[in-house]
Structures are given as C-alpha cells and as structure tokens.
Nucleic acid binder design. Structure first.
Length: 388
DNA sequence: GATCCACGGGAATACACGGATG
DNA sequence: CATCCGTGTATTCCCGTGGATC
C-alpha cells in the first residue's frame, strides 16, 4: 500500500469508522492495474511477446485456462501497460508526417463478449487505434474495414491483438473471426484467450500457453490484498479469507464476488468486521454454476434492466417464462413490450446468464413450461448496478 | 440517401399429451 | 400395440420499421 492510501485511510477513520472504504477497489469486475500473485504468468506471456521488443510481431498464440484463473485480468492489464509504450497513431491522413519509434508495435485488447457484429469488431479496433472518434452510424461495414486496413498498414510494424473470451460465442462466429484475422487485417498478430482445450479451439494458433487456476494460498493473498485496499483495517480475518478460497474452489472471480457481497452485508448492518455468517450468506447468493458478473454487466442496458426487474421478483410468482415476462413488463423498471422482454429472457437463457429449468410436475395439455434460474449473484449485480 | 441497430411483432417450429386410428 | 392427429403451450427464428447519425 502506498503512503497516500495509508493517509487517506487514517483520515477517513478519523471521523466515522466504516467497513467499506472503497467500493471500487472491492468490485469483482474492477479493472486491476497489477494482478496480484501472477508474476510468473506475466513473465511467460512476455517471453512469448519477446519479438515485439525488436519491432517484430510474435507468433499467434492461444492462451487458455479454467474460469477465475485471472486470464482476463492479466491479459487486459498487460496489454494496457504495453500499449503505453507505443505512440498513439494520429489520423490516417497524417501518418506520413508522424514520427514512428522503431518498436512501434501497437497493442489492442478486445473483449469478444462486447462484440456482437463484424461492424462492431472493426469499429472497436479502429477506435482503439485512433485518437479521433470513429462514427458508429451512417458508415458501411466495408468502409470501416478499408479505413482499418489503411490504419494498420500505416503502423508499419503492425499490431498485436488480444481477443478475450474467444470461445464465448458459437462456432460460426469464431470461424468468421478467423476469416477476418486472415483476410483484411494483416499485419496482425493475435493472442486469443479462452477456456477450451487447444484442440477444441477453432482458431489456428502457432503456439499455446496454459494458465493454471490459482493456488489456494495465492488466492488468499489476493483476497487479503483486496480487503486491505477496500476495507477498514482488520476487517477480514485471514481464516475467513481462507474459508472463502475453499468454498469458491479456487475461482478468483467467485471468491472476489463472495468477499464483495459479504463485506456489503456487514457494512449495511453497521459492523466493521466481516463475519462467518456474512460469508455464508454471500456464498448462498452465488449460484452454482455461475457466470462472470463482467459478462452480465457487458449486456446492453435494456437487458440489464430486465435482469434488475427479474432479481426483484419472488420465485413463487414466476413459475413460467410467460408469467415472468408479464411481471417484468408490468414493473416500471423496464419500458419494453412483453414480446421484447420475452425475447430478451430467452436470449439470455441461450448464453447462460439465466437458465431455463423444466417444470417437473406439470399437468394439462401443452408443452411444459420452464422457470428461470439466475446464473449470477443477484446481490452483487444489484450493488454493482447501483454504483454505475 | 445510406448506414447500423434495437425493438416489436409474429410466423414457424418444437414439444407434450390424450385420444383416435390402423 | 404402434402410430398418427389435434390441440395447446413453449421456444426459436425471422423480418420490417424507425431512430440516430454520417
């Protein structure tokens, strides 16, 4: 912890001791500048990227590992830092007058979860490469692509593109991604991140790199680091951190979510320490299995609004998708037609944000209905939505 | 005028069941 | 008995429209 942080903490403690000092530092989806305890992994990634320090592009690589191993956090942080060493491109028009440094390879990080169309893919790339803002409408996909080609050609050294969550979508999408990478985007080297074993990975990587799940002790350290940044002193016992690490099976995302919800619960109860009961309640809030909250928060605003309405509903009053649809469209949180709400619910079930569970005892004619179960921690989602 | 996308609406298909039919 | 059919519901799929922007 730096001196500023120590001083700020003392300052705050001066008047009113509060358990949660910094929600942002505690958020399980917060951008982490320096992922804790993953130095070795970062070294291995840098080993692979070694050619860029000679101004060359590294081979395409597929990085994989289990959920909650910190893949996204590490790659996102690493690319952000690497890009800081690259000069930002001016506009296409000015490329000829630009002074290029000899190692001007550019670095871009792209989360596939937030890219739902080819247009968006090109747009995000171009937006990341240029200072100037890129129009989102009134411009054709082909036009966007040709501009992108110009910009990439203008970088001289090319770009290294990190594509996170490559196996998040269906196969057809990933194949389209391969075509895009092969075709219009040279010179580009990519670093894809996913969960699937390399054999099941549809992109053709020249190399692979595996990231293991957190060791339990490392995860405990991560939790204690988070607690020291976000909570008041002595708020989290080492043993409780250990308990969280065990109960979440070494999944860092789940562990941080439990810490966040437990701390929030204690905070709201006016306590200054997290207790075992807080953790038990927080673990109960986390469904099994659960998807990343980042994925939920990456959804379009209207879908998130539907989810906000959904988590406030009592399970008994929505035994079917239709009933749930009616309840949600009747609530004043969303301003969408029932048709749209229903479609959203089905779409979110499709991608695993919620899950349809077939009703077991169903009499009468017709196809048996399903009820919806959440696949994310509702309390965490509620709090994170509030702070935005 | 051209572009993309979100939304709304509804058609098409899948599924389950009971009863009729071969 | 096996299969088909009709009915009712659930689920998936598709497309037109309109807003916003260039």
């Amino acid at each position: 912890m730096d001196i500023d942080a120590r001083i700020r903490r003392r300052w705050r403690q001066g008047h009113q001791p509060q358990l949660i000092q910094d929600y942002e530092a505690l958020s399980p989806v917060a951008h982490i500048d320096e992922p804790a305890g993953r130095g070795l992994v970062i070294e291995r990634l840098l080993d692979h990227l070694e050619p860029v320090f000679d101004g060359k592009l590294p081979p395409d690589v597929y990085v994989y590992g289990p959920p909650g191993a910190g893949k996204s956090a590490i790659v996102a942080a690493l690319f952000a830092h690497l890009e800081q060493f690259s000069p930002k491109a001016q506009s296409v028009i000015h490329t000829s007058t630009r002074v290029t440094s000899p190692t001007a390879v550019r670095f871009l990080y792209l989360d596939r979860r937030q890219v739902t169309s080819t247009f968006e893919f090109y747009h995000r790339l171009l937006d990341g490469l240029l200072e100037e803002t890129v129009p989102e409408q009134g411009i054709s996909t082909a036009e966007l692509r040709s501009r992108l080609q110009d910009v990439i050609a203008g970088t001289r050294r090319g770009i290294v593109l990190a594509i996170d969550h490559v196996d998040n979508r269906n196969e057809a999408d990933t194949i389209a991604l391969q075509e895009v990478l092969d075709g219009p985007l040279a010179p580009v080297s990519w670093l894809a991140v996913g969960r699937s074993a390399p054999a099941k990975q549809p992109l053709s990587a020249e190399a692979t790199l595996e990231i293991d799940a957190y060791q339990r002790q490392t995860l405990v350290d991560v939790l204690m680091t988070r607690a020291s940044k976000g909570l008041t002193q002595q708020a989290l016992d080492h043993e409780l951190a250990h308990s969280i690490a065990i109960q979440t099976g070494g999944n860092a995302h789940h562990a941080l979510t439990v810490l966040f919800v437990a701390a929030d619960r204690a905070h709201r109860a006016g306590r200054t320490r997290v207790t075992e009961a807080d953790i038990t309640a927080a673990v109960a809030d986390l469904p099994e299995p659960a998807v990343s909250l980042a994925r939920v928060l990456a959804l379009p605003a209207n879908k998130q609004a539907v989810l906000q309405a959904l988590i406030e509903l009592d399970a008994t009053e929505c035994p079917t998708v239709t009933a749930t649809t009616d309840r949600i469209s009747a609530s004043d949180v969303v301003d969408l037609s029932p048709e749209t709400v229903r479609r959203f619910l089905y779409e979110m079930a499709e991608i695993g944000i919620v899950e349809r569970v077939r009703a077991e005892n169903h009499d009468g004619p017709g196809r048996p209905p399903s009820r919806l179960e959440l696949r994310f921690a509702p309390t965490a989602f509620r709090r994170l939505s509030e702070t935005v």
